[in-house]
Design a binder for these strands. Structure first.
Lengths: 185, 185
DNA sequence: AATAACATGTAGCATGTGCTACATAATTTG
DNA sequence: CAAATTATGTAGCACATGCTACATGTTATT
C-alpha cells in the first residue's frame, strides 16, 4: 500500500471518530479538518470532494459497526432473551455512538440521497445479525420474528436518543409480558 | 385578533406545510420564503429570528399532529389489534409526513437543542395516545405494554423511512406470532 | 545532485445564510 | 386630512462553506 493510501486511511479513521462523536451536522470540511489536526486543503488533496470523503467515512463506520456486531454475537437465543440482550447492548457506550449516527442517517436519507445507500446497508447488517442470533422453534418463524425484534429494538434506539430511559425499561417489560403469556390476545 | 396576528398564523401554516413536505434540511429563510410566496425580509418582520420561526412552526406541527392522532382514536383495542391498527396508520399518507418529520426531529435533537423539547413533547403525545387506546386485562400491564407498542411502532416508522416495506410486513407478522402463542419462550 | 512527484500553506472566489439598515408604499388612527 | 404605525422592497454586511489557484517546501527516483 502506498504511503498516501495509508495517510488516507488514517484521515478516514480520524474522521469516522469525529462523526461518531459529533454527528453529521457540524461536519464542514473546516470543522472536520480542525478536529483531526489538518486543513480543509489537505482533505481535498486526499479526497476528490466532500461527498467522496463522507461516503468513504460512512462506509468505514458501517464496516466498524459490522465487526462490533460480530463481536457481540453469542449463542442463538430465544425471542425473549434476545430482546433483553439487545436492549442492554443498545445502551452500551461502545454501541450508542453508532446507533445515534445510524438514526441520523435514516432521518437524513429521506432528503439526502448520499446517505440512503449506507443507511440501507447498515439496516441489512442489523437484520441479518438478528436473523442469525435468533433461535426459533419453527424455521418459518425466523424472519418475521427477526423483523419484529429489529423494529422493537430500533424503537428503543429512538427512545434512547430522546433520553426516555424509563420508557425503554417499561417497554422491555411490556415485551416480556406480551411474549410470555397470552396477555395481549 | 389583530390583523398582523392573522398574517403570522397564515405564514406559520404555510411554513408548517412546507416543512412537512421538505423536511428540516432545506429550510433556509430564503427557501421558506420563496416556497410560501413571500420574502425572508417579511419572515423576519413577523418573527424575531429564525429560531422563533422554527419553534413556532414545529409547535404548530405538533398541535396538528395531536389532533390527527385524536381523529384516529377508536375504541380501546387489545395489544395485537392495536399493533396492526397502528401499523396501517403509520403508512397512511396523512400521517407519514408527520412521522418523517418527527424522526428527523429525534435525530437532530441530540445535536441541536432547539428540537429536543418539541421531539419530547410529540413523544409524550404518542405514548399517551397509545396508553389510552390500549385495552388491557390487568391495569398494571397498561404502561409497559403501551411503551412496548410505542417502541415497535417507532421501529416501523424508521423502517418505513428506509422504504423497507417488506420488513414492516414481516415484522408485524412476527409481532402477531410472538403475542398469540408462546412462540418466543 | 537533478529532476519529478507529492505534500502542505496562504489566499481567495462563489455561493448560501441569518440578519440589518434604509427607504418607500400602504394602512390605520387621531 | 395629517400623523403615526405597519407592510414591504432593495441592498448589503458578516460569516460559513465547498472548492480552486498559486506558490513553496519535502520526498522519492534516476
Amino acid at each position: 500500500m502506498h504511503k498516501s493510501e495509508i495517510k488516507r486511511q488514517q484521515l478516514l479513521d480520524a474522521i469516522a471518530d469525529y462523526l461518531l462523536v459529533n454527528g453529521l451536522q457540524d461536519s464542514s470540511l473546516r470543522h472536520l479538518a480542525a478536529a483531526i489536526g489538518t486543513s480543509d486543503r489537505m482533505l481535498l488533496h486526499y479526497f476528490v470532494n466532500k461527498e467522496e470523503l463522507m461516503t468513504a467515512s460512512l462506509n468505514l463506520i458501517a464496516a466498524r459497526m459490522l465487526s462490533l456486531l460480530e463481536s457481540a454475537r453469542a449463542q442463538p437465543m430465544r425471542l425473549q432473551t434476545l430482546l433483553a440482550y439487545l436492549t442492554e447492548i443498545v445502551k452500551e457506550p461502545r454501541f450508542r455512538p453508532y446507533l445515534r449516527l445510524w438514526l441520523e442517517l435514516v432521518a437524513l436519507s429521506t432528503s439526502m440521497d448520499v446517505y440512503r445507500l449506507i443507511a440501507r446497508q447498515i439496516c441489512n447488517s442489523f437484520y441479518n445479525w438478528i436473523t442469525l442470533a435468533l433461535e426459533v422453534g419453527q424455521e418459518e418463524d425466523r424472519e418475521p420474528l427477526a423483523a419484529f425484534i429489529f423494529a422493537t429494538v430500533e424503537g428503543f434506539v429512538l427512545l434512547d436518543a430522546l433520553e426516555c430511559g424509563a420508557l425503554i425499561t417499561s417497554g422491555l417489560q411490556g415485551a416480556m409480558r406480551s411474549t410470555t403469556s397470552s396477555a395481549g390476545v
